[in-house]
Amino acid sequence: MRTPVNRTLLCLAGLVLLAVGCAVLIGGLDLPRRWGFALPSWWSYRGPHDVLLDVRARTRYRKEGWWWPAVIGGLAVLAVAALFWLLAQFRHRGPGRMLVHSGEDGDVVLRGRAMEQALAADAAELPGVLGADALLTGGRTRPRVEMRMLLDRFAGPAEVVSELDGRVLAEARTSTGVDWLPAEVRLQAERHRARRVR
């Protein structure tokens, strides 16, 4: 959930809401008169008596019973969705850092994202694998791996899983010093057109 695109969208949405809120507060608190500055001609809210909707806009659907409940309900759903989106930015399913025992040199702290990238890169180099993605879940002492792998159309799933367990996951267990690193792997075959046989 915490991808750069997601952060950018969240930042832009926050800036837009902040700008709209400041525009309303400047007029609502009558700051131009109090602080002695002039607002541009296109500024909508100039004083505390300005309203968001004029009389015509407020009374246009007054006879329709569905209008205001629909508006309030839509805004409530939007606010709840935005709140969940914001809270999802602080949720991390996997260990942020792992403690790696390196013998005489002491312990090394390994970022969980670096571990995910290393697992994905190693898995992508296996024969028959076109691409891989890894996600660490679980706690710092009991990590788990969720992987998605795109296979070549001629690759055997059993061989790929065997290579993944015997090479990639074994090396990850050895390098991090964990005895137990279970993995859930989702395999997807490359899409291709069926060849016509004559």
Rank of each mutant, 00 (worst) to 15 (best):
P40C: 14
W43C: 10
G14C: 10
W67S: 13
L31Q: 02
L135C: 12
V161L: 15
W85S: 12
Q117D: 14
M98N: 02
C11M: 10
I72G: 03
A70K: 04
V77A: 13
G21K: 09
A82H: 08
L110W: 13
H101Q: 12
L150T: 09
E159N: 08
V51E: 15
A13G: 13
E190A: 06
G65Q: 07
T141F: 09
L25N: 01
G138C: 08
P95T: 01
G128P: 03
A88E: 05
E104K: 10
Y61N: 07
V51A: 15
D105Y: 10
P69S: 06
A81K: 01
H92G: 03
R142G: 05
D54G: 15
A88M: 04
A170I: 00
L31G: 00
L12C: 13
A81M: 06
T174A: 15
V178S: 06
L52Y: 10
L130Y: 05
R56V: 14
L169Y: 09
V51H: 15
R198G: 05
T3N: 03
S102C: 03
L136A: 09
R58T: 15
R142E: 11
M149D: 02
I72A: 05
S41W: 04
A134V: 08
R144L: 02
A123K: 06
G112P: 04
V161N: 00
G14E: 03
Q117W: 00
E125C: 03
A23M: 09
P40F: 13
R93D: 13
L18K: 00
R34P: 02
L126Q: 04
A123G: 09
G74K: 01
A155M: 11
D122E: 14
L29A: 11
R2E: 07
G131Y: 04
R195G: 04
Q188N: 00
E64L: 10
L126G: 06
W43D: 09
R91Y: 05
V109T: 10
W85Y: 06
V5Y: 03
R62V: 13
E171C: 04
G73P: 08
R46I: 07
G166Y: 09
P40Y: 12
E104L: 11
N6F: 03
G21Q: 07
V80S: 13
L52D: 09
R62G: 01
L181Y: 14
L29D: 01
D107H: 12
E64M: 03
W66G: 02
R62T: 09
L119E: 05
L181E: 11
E125R: 14
L119P: 15
P157C: 03
P40H: 12
R56I: 05
V55K: 11
V129S: 11
L135T: 15
A158C: 00
T3S: 02
G36M: 03
R97A: 14
L15A: 08
L150W: 08
G131P: 00
G94V: 01
W68P: 01
G156R: 12
T176H: 08
